[in-house]
């Protein structure tokens, strides 16, 4: 009995320590990236290339998901609001949900599984095939040449993707409620405009997605760079990227939301 309890407690302790240790390691790694970011800005072509792989190639999944999420929000919101006789407010509901939460969070989750895992796998494979070692032996620091451009590519891409996600979502909501369900178009937009605030909703949403971009890119590059140089090592690292990024996104979202709400009242 005591043994089982002790074992359970030990497991909890070990897990906590390893999580805290991992967060610390990612933060230290982030510092390393920032210290080696000079090359990325002197040769911005390197970053542009990564914006292509992280951003442009995630465009389709982001746009389509945004449209669908907006449509579902429109349908659900319409159902509920109609029973209160205020179906015109559906625009407000769609826009606020997308700007404040769903836009930044869902696009970051999609980005973590689409681009984050790809970054981890690529860096992990480069390490496993000794490309990073080779680069180091050519007197080129892989942190500056490989890791930092991918990090900045992700940091630049995600806020743009989040904005596109929200815009597509509002378009989807508009299509479902105004075009299909017959909500008045003027009321849809005007109520939305009266309720959505540039600073509190749009800019805060952008800040969120910027923070998520830093977190996901740092985790993805960290997992790739620290991956054991074997096939299982790289596949495990890819999985860890998706899992830890998703958890980090949701936890950071809670923190940021609480922080921003405090600013409202």
């Amino acid at each position: 009995m005591r043994g089982a309890w002790g074992h359970g407690l030990r497991t909890v302790g070990d897990t906590t320590l390893s999580i805290v240790g991992r967060i610390g390691a990612v933060v230290l790694f982030l510092g390393q990236i920032l210290r080696h970011s000079g090359t990325s800005f002197r040769r911005f072509g390197l970053v542009i290339r990564e914006v292509y792989f992280a951003g442009v190639q995630s465009l389709i999944i982001i746009l389509v998901s945004g449209l669908f999420v907006g449509m579902v929000l429109g349908l659900q919101g319409f159902e509920t609001l109609q029973s209160y006789g205020s179906s015109e407010s559906v625009g407000v509901l769609v826009a606020l949900s997308l700007m404040r939460e769903l836009g930044p969070v869902v696009s970051a989750l999609l980005f973590a599984s689409r681009a984050g895992s790809a970054i981890t796998a690529e860096i992990g494979l480069m390490k496993a095939t000794e490309q990073l070692s080779a680069m180091e032996m050519m007197a080129v620091n892989p942190l500056a040449r490989v890791v930092a451009p991918r990090f900045w590519g992700g940091v630049i891409s995600l806020p743009l993707l989040a904005v596109l996600f929200a815009a597509m979502g509002i378009l989807g909501g508009f299509l479902v409620t105004v075009v299909m369900l017959g909500v008045d178009s003027g009321a849809f937009w005007s109520q939305m405009q009266a309720a959505v605030d540039f600073h509190h909703d749009i800019l805060n949403g952008m800040i969120k997605s910027l923070v998520f971009g830093v977190a996901v890119s740092a985790i993805a590059t960290f997992e790739g760079y620290e991956a054991p140089p074997t096939a299982e090592g790289v596949s495990g690292a890819t999985t860890r990227t998706v899992v830890s990024s998703s958890l980090a996104i949701l936890a950071l979202d809670l923190l940021l939301t609480a922080f921003m709400m405090k600013g409202w009242n």
């Binding site: 542009i48 290339r49 914006v51 292509y52 951003g55 442009v56 465009l59 826009a95 700007m99 891409s157 806020p159 743009l160 993707l161 904005v163 596109l164 929200a166 815009a167 509002i170 937009w189 939305m192 405009q193 009266a194 959505v196 605030d197 540039f198 909703d201 749009i202 952008m206």
Partner: peptide, 25 residues
């Protein structure tokens, strides 16, 4: 590649402007 990235960034900015003026206030 640069063309695509340019297109992507422009698209993002247009979406941002739409959100700022059409959706926000």
């Amino acid at each position: 590649l640069n063309l695509w990235v340019g297109f992507f960034v422009l698209l993002g900015f247009l979406a941002f402007l739409m959100l700022a003026f059409k959706v926000g206030n």
